[in-house]
């Protein structure tokens, strides 16, 4: 049961991450490339994005 929960969590994390990424890229008007850059910087611990 724990393995099943972990699999579901990983899948949900991926789906929510993709949906959130799309939301920022399209609705936020940032574009896919800029969003990918800022996300990489944020997750890697960078202080600033493309600016």
């Amino acid at each position: 049961m724990i393995r099943r929960m972990l699999t579901h969590t990983a899948a949900a994390t991926l789906v929510i991450a993709v949906a959130a990424f799309t939301f920022q890229a399209l609705a936020g008007g940032d574009g896919i490339a800029r969003t990918a850059w800022t996300l990489t910087a944020a997750v890697a611990g960078g202080d600033h994005g493309i600016d």
Binding site: M5, T13, L14, Q24, A27, T35, L39, A41
Partner: peptide, 21 residues
């Protein structure tokens, strides 16, 4: 799955630049 997935994504995107995410 929804709560833990949303929590992980929200925690990792707390930065100002990823505010919409």
């Amino acid at each position: 799955a929804a709560l833990s997935g949303a929590f992980i994504v929200a925690y990792l995107t707390g930065d100002e630049d990823t505010y919409a995410m």
